[in-house]
Every structure is written in structure tokens, then in C-alpha cells.
């Protein structure tokens, strides 16, 4: 991704964890798209129900919630310290 290397210069050592978060930030929407698109999404149709709620409903909302949680963690890790970002 073009944005990923926007630092331009090799990041300092303390930025290494941030770099991994950044790579994850790029991959999360990709994972989400895979999980929510056919053929993957049609699989839980055959799983029946869980506590009366169809598995497919639980699957869609589960993936959705997982994306939100990961995004919340990512936002915390990637939020630029005020003014520090170029």
C-alpha cells in the first residue's frame, strides 16, 4: 500500500510495534471482506441454530462485532500523538 510506507525514512526502533499495527490496519478490512463475502458467508447456513437464533445471524453479527473490537484496539495503537505525525 502506498500509505504504509509514508514514513519515507526507516522508522526508529521504538516504532516497530506501531509498524506492525499499521500492517494489521491494512489487513483488517481485507479479512473482513473475505469473511463477509460468498462463499465464506454462506457456510453458517448449514449450522442450524444456537439458542434459537439462526447461526448465520450470529455469524454475521459476530464478525461485525469482532471487526469493531479490532478497529477499536487499532485506533488506540495508531492514533498519532498530537502533532507528532508528519
Amino acid at each position: 500500500m502506498r500509505d504504509a510506507d509514508d514514513a519515507g525514512v526507516p522508522a526508529a526502533a521504538e516504532d516497530a510495534p506501531r509498524r506492525r499495527w499499521r500492517d494489521l490496519a491494512i489487513l483488517v478490512p481485507v479479512f473482513g471482506t473475505f469473511a463477509l463475502m460468498p462463499p465464506l458467508i454462506a457456510i453458517p447456513l448449514g449450522w442450524g441454530a444456537l439458542g434459537g437464533v439462526p447461526a448465520i445471524v450470529l455469524y454475521v453479527f459476530g464478525v461485525w462485532a469482532a471487526l469493531i473490537l479490532v478497529a477499536a484496539r487499532l485506533a488506540g495503537a495508531l492514533t498519532p500523538r498530537s502533532g507528532a505525525e508528519r
Binding site: M1, D3, R22, A25, I26, V28, P29, V30, G32, T33, L36, V60, W64, L67, I68, V70, A71, L74, L78
Partner: peptide, 17 residues
């Protein structure tokens, strides 16, 4: 109906890109 919200969800969790 969920598609209308899943699209924006994917765009927002991929905000970095």
C-alpha cells in the same frame, strides 16, 4: 439489509488505507 451497513463498516475499520 445488513449489506448497507457492512460496506461502511469495512471502509471505516480500514480507515488507515
Amino acid at each position: 439489509f445488513a449489506t448497507i451497513y457492512l460496506g461502511p463498516t469495512l471502509v471505516f475499520v480500514g480507515w488507515w488505507v
